[in-house]
Computed example of a mutant assay.
Amino acid sequence: MRYAAIDIGSNAVRLLIADIADASNPVTFKKNTLIRVPLRLGDDAFIDKKISAKKIDSLVKTMHAFHNLMDVYGVTDYRACATSAMREAANGPEIVEKVKTEAGINLEIVGGQIEANIIYASHFEEKLDRKKNYLYIDVGGGSTELSFFSDNVLVASQSFNIGTIRILDNQDKDETWKEMERFIQSNTKSYKDITGIGTGGNINKLFKLAEEKEGKPLAYNKLKTLHHHLSSYSL
């Protein structure tokens, strides 16, 4: 069977089509097709608190194209979720109705905690070393989801309004950064030797810029050096 997932993010809109590789428990999927369209809805939502007519039109056209692609690929079922940008846009519910009417896509705007739960539902923790502690960091355009695991058990998970588009638009708040720090400190203070796992387009780009081999961890000192280098640029 073939399924699809549509992610309406603050930076880009994605369609992932995947096939069931193993139907046993847990079910595993094999990626068939991934399409990314950089609409940057967050630029509107975080500054103007609504999505512009121009970007709504682009989103509807993209959803219509995704609908046709799912039909061509013979997708059995799908789930379409909108995250941070659509959560904050005053006209988010109106856009959901427009997408349903004009593109035939049932779109849901999910809350920050549900977004974190969806990430956890991927069961990536089952591939980790049970003897280690992990802080899973998913950085998006409008929000960052943190999930802390110990002994393969989810200890705590939370979504924060900190993301790459929000930062570029100077819409991140000091209090949110402090809230994130408090979350990390309060949930990890009783644990030692914590390994960070980062995901997201910008995290992947940093790893490539660091020129590390795939599967090898990125050292903190090297990350600091890379940050210093990038900070020297005006943009």
Rank of each mutant, 00 (worst) to 15 (best):
153 V>S: 09
191 Y>H: 11
139 V>M: 15
129 D>C: 10
110 V>F: 00
191 Y>W: 12
183 F>M: 10
145 E>D: 09
113 Q>N: 13
167 I>S: 04
193 D>G: 07
171 Q>H: 10
104 G>N: 12
162 I>W: 03
136 Y>M: 12
150 S>D: 06
196 G>P: 03
135 L>A: 09
151 D>A: 14
170 N>H: 14
159 S>G: 06
193 D>V: 11
191 Y>P: 03
161 N>Q: 13
188 T>W: 01
198 G>C: 10
160 F>Q: 06
197 I>W: 03
184 I>T: 07
147 S>Y: 00
139 V>K: 03
175 E>Q: 10
122 S>W: 05
130 R>N: 14
157 S>L: 09
183 F>K: 07
170 N>E: 14
150 S>V: 07
182 R>A: 15
139 V>N: 04
165 I>L: 06
192 K>P: 06
183 F>L: 06
102 E>C: 01
168 L>E: 11
163 G>P: 01
185 Q>D: 14
159 S>Q: 06
173 K>G: 05
173 K>S: 04
122 S>N: 09
123 H>D: 11
101 T>N: 10
117 N>E: 15
135 L>V: 12
119 I>Y: 05
155 V>A: 00
102 E>F: 07
181 E>Y: 08
117 N>T: 09
104 G>D: 08
181 E>V: 12
114 I>N: 01
168 L>P: 02
197 I>V: 15
106 N>E: 13
197 I>R: 03
195 T>R: 09
145 E>L: 08
145 E>W: 03
191 Y>G: 04
112 G>A: 12
179 E>Q: 12
169 D>T: 15
162 I>H: 02
176 T>Y: 01
149 F>I: 13
109 I>H: 01
